[in-house]
Amino acid sequence: MSPRRRIRLPHLLLTAALLGALPGSPPAAASTASARAVTLRVATYNIHAGAGMDNVFDLDRQTAELRSLGADVIGLQEADRHWGSRSEWRDLARELAGRLGMYVFFAPIYSLDPAEPGGPRAEFGVAVLSRYRIVSAENHEITRLSTQDPNPAPAPTPGFGEVVVRVEGRPVHVYVTHLDHRPDPVVRTAQVADTRRIMAEDRGPKILLGDFNAEPGAPELAPLWKELTDADPGAPTFPAQDPVKRIDYVAVSKGAAQVRRVWVPESVASDHRAVVADLVLRGR
Rank of each mutant, 00 (worst) to 15 (best):
P26I: 01
D58F: 06
L40W: 02
A30S: 12
A71R: 01
A49H: 13
Q62G: 05
V38N: 04
D80R: 00
T39L: 13
L66G: 03
L69N: 04
L66R: 00
L69H: 04
H82Q: 07
W83E: 07
P23K: 11
V56S: 09
F57G: 03
T44E: 08
D72H: 09
W83K: 07
L40N: 03
L22R: 15
N46D: 10
A33Q: 14
G70V: 05
A35I: 00
G75D: 01
H82C: 10
S68G: 13
S25Q: 14
G70L: 10
G70Q: 08
A30F: 07
A64K: 11
R81K: 14
L19P: 00
S25G: 07
A79M: 11
L13A: 12
A28H: 14
S31C: 10
A49F: 14
D80T: 03
I74D: 01
H11L: 14
L66P: 03
R36V: 06
F57N: 10
V42R: 00
T32N: 13
A71K: 01
I47N: 03
A49K: 04
L14H: 07
R41E: 04
G70Y: 04
S25L: 09
S34Q: 15
A33R: 09
P23I: 07
A16L: 15
I47G: 02
R61C: 07
A49L: 13
R81I: 02
L12Q: 12
I74Y: 01
V42Q: 03
L12A: 15
L59T: 06
Y45H: 03
A33G: 08
A35K: 00
S85M: 09
